[in-house]
Structures are given as C-alpha cells and as structure tokens.
C-alpha cells in the first residue's frame, strides 16, 4: 500500500528510497510499453520507401490484360525479404483496377509464378542473370536493388544517390515483357540502354 502511495506522493512514511524505487518501476513499465509500440517491425527507411514504390508500380505500369479481372494482383518477393511486414501493411485494403493486392514470398525462382511484380532480394545477387534470362519476355515487372540489375536485363533497378532513392529503367526489357510504364515514372528515372 505504501508503495502505491509512493506513486501518488501522499505517503507520509515513505522515504526517498521507496519513492525512487517506485518511480524507477513506473518508468521501466512506461519505457517497456513505449518500446512495444516502437517495436512494430520497421524495416530500414529506404525499404519503407521502396515498399511504397512497389505499390505505386502497380498503378503506374500497365500489364497486358491476360489475367481474369477477379484474380488478385500479386507482388512477389524472391529470396530474403527486406520489407518485414511493411509491404503487407502498405497494400492492405488497397485495390488496383478493382483487384486486391497480395504479397507472396518465394525461396526459389521456379516457385515464383503468376506474379505481376517480382522483387528480387539481395540474397539472389549471384543468380540474378540466370533468374532474368528465365523470365525474359514474360509480363512480370522485375524489380531489384542489386547492382547492375537494369543492365543485366532487369526492368526497374533501385539505387541510392546522395541518400535518396533513384530508379534505373531498362525499356527494352519492359517492352519485351509487353508492359507499359507511365511517363510519370519515366520522367524521374534514368533509362538504361
């Protein structure tokens, strides 16, 4: 009881130590609570931005209309996922042309079928040429931040310049995949030839 009173400061008998201890406990609880709030799995800021870019690509890129319009729009992640739950939160409840969005994660290239967008993680760095050649001419928007991705035949490559994200787009690869990228994106991206 004295301890509780120490919190509210109305305990005549409580000495400084008890009070101090009480406050220490309270601060610990508050700190712990605050940590829990903070501890939403936040990826690095650059991947928060990239996640939102992946979502934006769904709007700024036009796919040939082969899929049934009620099938979900799939963003695939091949290899290690740098986004945590952030990408899932980004697309939650969103729709693209009336299709809901889902995120699928794949360990192997062969599993990654039926994606509209495929993000290729850093773990696939050594296999990237192989992955891209297996997908050549397919209507899947390939995206990665692996060095040299666009020049190897990937469609959109992220890179960082002066602490800001930049994009490099391989238009031949995009064309081969029968995709069309909005000028809004092209305007701000670098084009690989």
């Amino acid at each position: 009881m004295a301890f509780l009173k120490a919190f509210v400061g109305r305990c005549a008998k409580c000495d400084l130590k008890t009070r101090l201890r009480a406050w220490l406990l309270l601060s610990a609880i508050v700190l712990f609570g605050a940590m829990k709030v903070c501890a939403q799995t936040a990826p690095q800021p650059e991947y928060q931005v990239k996640a939102v870019f992946l979502f934006n690509f769904a709007q700024f890129v036009t796919w040939p209309s082969q899929q049934p319009s009620d099938a979900p729009f799939v963003i695939g992640i091949l290899g290690d996922d740098p986004f945590g739950s952030y990408l899932d939160e980004t697309v939650r409840g969103e729709k693209v042309n009336n299709r809901s969005l889902t995120i699928q994660r794949f360990r192997r290239n062969a599993e990654a079928r039926n994606c509209n967008i495929l993000f290729i993680g850093q773990s696939e760095r050594d296999r990237v040429a192989q992955i891209l050649s297996s997908r050549k001419g397919r209507s899947v928007l390939t995206v990665s931040d692996i060095d040299g991705f666009a020049d190897l035949g990937g469609m959109i490559q992220f890179f960082t310049e002066k602490n800001k994200i930049r994009m490099r787009i391989n238009l031949d690869a995009v064309k081969a995949g029968n995709l069309k990228i909005s000028s809004k994106l092209l305007r701000v991206a670098e084009v690989a030839h």
């Binding site: 800021p45 931005v49 939102v52 934006n56 960082t160 602490n163 800001k164 994200i165 701000v188």
Partner: peptide, 11 residues
C-alpha cells in the same frame, strides 16, 4: 513519385 524520390533514406 517526385516526393518519394526526395525522401532522405538515411535520416
């Protein structure tokens, strides 16, 4: 898109 490209990703 322009604003996203302007986000400083280090800070």
């Amino acid at each position: 898109v322009e604003e996203l490209l302007d986000v400083d990703v280090t800070s």
